[in-house]
Amino acid sequence: MQAIQAEDPDALAQLYDRYNGILKALILRVVHNEAEADDLLQEIFMEIWNQAKNFSAQKGKPLGWMVTLARRRAIDGLRKKQAYARAEERLQNETEQQPDAWVHNATEEAIVLGDTRLLMRKVISGLPPAQQQAIDLAFFQGMSQREIAAKTNTPLGTVKTRLELGLKKIYDGLKELRDEL
């Protein structure tokens, strides 16, 4: 990140090689459209380049900063295009097709996973489906608790409890991993 802050294009190229797969997966999870995800990925790396001076290592790791930025941008993109309805429909279909931690039959072959990735998959797939769904809608679709309650036809208090319990379990899992490392 220091080299990017010093405006070294090769450093950005390295950063891209290292993290484009993670960021693209996140964007794709939000917008559910390959071409839009590619466009957003390019915009996000351009923003990383432009905003690098605002990154502070004291406030966290580069990946965390980039993910926060990518998520915000992807959700903004989704809202701007008023694609909520279409995305929800695709999300429903893709939930059955996409093998990742948010689906119960996740397979992990062909990918070398780091400790965090393995742990997160384990923790998330171990959450009750209702907690997974609430977190998925909040994080990847940018929905508020009220919107989740309306979408899932669930009392607001229940949504709140699901989010709190689910997030705490994930947070505790991360903390445990950090303590071990």
Binding site: L23, K24, L26, Q42, K61, W102, G114, L174
Partner: peptide, 23 residues
């Protein structure tokens, strides 16, 4: 750090080489 964790929970996606070239 939850943001990073959620991103890492997803299977990485492939992007086209043209994106990097344009960028």
């Amino acid at each position: 750090s939850l943001h990073e964790a959620f991103a890492l929970s997803l299977r990485p996606a492939k992007s086209s080489a043209a994106i990097k070239e344009r960028l």
